[in-house]
Simulated assay, not measured.
Amino acid sequence: MAIMFVRAQVISRGAGRSIVSAAAYRHRARMMDEQAGTAFSYRGGASELVHEELVLPDRIPDWLKIAIDGKSVAGASEILWNAVDSFESRADGQLARELIIALPEELTRAENVALVRDFVRDNLTSKG
C-alpha cells in the first residue's frame, strides 16, 4: 500500500515564519529561536503528538553529529533548525519544505510509521 496524498509547502522567512517555531509546534515542545532570541512553547498540545523522529541522511557534518548526540528528538531538531536559520541569511530565505502526508487509516500506527520511513528514505535521505 502506498501513501495516498502528499502536499509540500515552503517555510520561509519571506512569509514571516520562524523555522524554530514551526519545529516547536510539530514536536509539541519548547524551543529557543537563537536568531530572534524568542522562546516558543507548544507543550499544551502534547497529547496530539503520536510519533516523532528526526531522520537525517547518512552523511551529515561531524559538528551536527556531535551537537545532536544524546539529545531528544525535539532537542536535536531545535539544534538542526537553529543551524539552518543561522546559515540562511537572506530575508526571503526558504528554510524548509514541509510535507503534509495523508496516511491510510486501514493501517496500524506501526505500519504507517514504516510507510513514512520508507517514503522518506526512498525520496529524501537517500538523495542526501
Rank of each mutant, 00 (worst) to 15 (best):
51 H>A: 07
81 W>P: 02
25 Y>I: 03
97 R>D: 00
84 V>Q: 01
33 D>F: 11
30 R>Y: 13
12 S>K: 08
29 A>E: 00
61 P>D: 03
53 E>Q: 01
59 R>E: 08
101 I>Q: 05
51 H>T: 09
74 A>T: 00
66 I>Q: 13
69 D>R: 11
127 K>D: 04
106 E>P: 06
4 M>Y: 14
25 Y>F: 07
16 G>M: 02
118 D>N: 10
107 L>V: 06
15 A>E: 08
52 E>P: 03
106 E>Y: 14
81 W>N: 00
49 L>V: 12
72 S>K: 11
82 N>F: 15
20 V>H: 03
100 I>G: 11
119 F>T: 05
38 T>V: 12
56 L>H: 03
3 I>R: 04
118 D>T: 14
67 A>C: 05
102 A>G: 10
14 G>P: 07
107 L>W: 10
45 G>E: 14
115 L>V: 09
116 V>D: 01
24 A>F: 01
122 D>P: 05
121 R>L: 08
4 M>T: 14
72 S>G: 08
93 G>V: 10
87 F>G: 13
69 D>A: 14
114 A>F: 13
82 N>T: 13
78 E>N: 08
108 T>H: 08
95 L>F: 04
12 S>Y: 08
58 D>T: 07
121 R>V: 11
34 E>M: 05
28 R>S: 07
35 Q>P: 15
77 S>V: 10
88 E>Q: 11
57 P>E: 00
126 S>F: 03
80 L>T: 05
126 S>T: 04
107 L>T: 08
97 R>Y: 14
127 K>G: 06
128 G>R: 00
26 R>C: 01
98 E>F: 11
61 P>F: 07
21 S>K: 04
41 S>T: 15
47 S>G: 11
87 F>N: 09
38 T>Q: 08
124 L>Y: 09
22 A>G: 15
23 A>E: 01
49 L>K: 07
6 V>A: 09
13 R>I: 09
89 S>Y: 12
24 A>Y: 08
124 L>D: 06
117 R>S: 07
116 V>Q: 02
49 L>Y: 03
119 F>H: 12
114 A>M: 08
51 H>K: 02
124 L>Q: 07
52 E>M: 02
94 Q>A: 14
13 R>C: 03
11 I>A: 03
